[in-house]
Amino acid sequence: MVKKIFEKSYLLIILAMLYAPIIFIIVYSFSGSSNFNFKDGFTFASYEAIFTSDKSASLWEAVGNTFLIASVSSVCATIMGTFASIGIFALGKRIRRPVEAVNQFPIINSEIVMAVSFMIFFVTCRFAEGYARLIIAHIAFCTPYVVLSVLPKLESLDPNVYEAALDLGANPFKAMMKVIFPIISPAIVSGFVMAFTISLDDFIITQINKGAATGIDTLSTYIYSDARVQGLEPFWYAMFSIIFVLVLGIILVVNMAKMRKQKKEALKNGI
């Protein structure tokens, strides 16, 4: 019993450490200042500042860029990754192994090395600075996640399922559209979500490849350039709070739904 309480409190302490900064930021986002005091009482001033501050324009531009780059690159990554998975699945073992190794590489590699290798490449090839660089880089490090999501699903597929479709009169194209895609679609969706999140979240690769002159900033690079120098202005507290609540909320809801579904299925199979 004592052991149980000890264990519980240990978990709580670690959790508290993990969430303390987040909770502090959220609490003080209502103080309207960045000095961790409630001199002005409870106020939404910081939240208003997101829209009214002299930096709002660039802030919203950065938000727009973040979503633009994440959407374009994750859609491209999903399309390319899905087709690549089907192709890789059909490859002979000998070619398949090196291809899979190359696919793993961006995932195991350290981000900074990836980032500078992209930069060297773009600089050497005199590739125009701007969105294209960022989007290509993002596709390159997002697609492996899509492949990693879709390829195992293809592997777990009964190989006879595709043949069964042919056997029942579907031509190869129809068999692909009516059988293979519907079956692997959950894996495609989760690959897409993964690619989108990872692209949204990226800082290092964008920071190093955005190029000094273009002035393109994503949210993370904008935070870095703004907050590194002057510390956090009050509107950042509000911004961070919104991000915390959004991200944590979405992840929590998605995962809970997944768990509930698993539980339901387990129950159903039990009967």
Partner: peptide, 28 residues
């Protein structure tokens, strides 16, 4: 040909990765 086409699906990706992942590493 059909059997080959399925493999062909992987070629754009392989090419892409060669160009944007392997070549940059070689450059480093």
């Amino acid at each position: 040909k059909f059997h080959v086409t399925k493999r062909v699906f992987s070629y754009p990706y392989i090419l892409f990765m060669l160009l944007f992942v392997i070549v940059p590493l070689v450059m480093i």
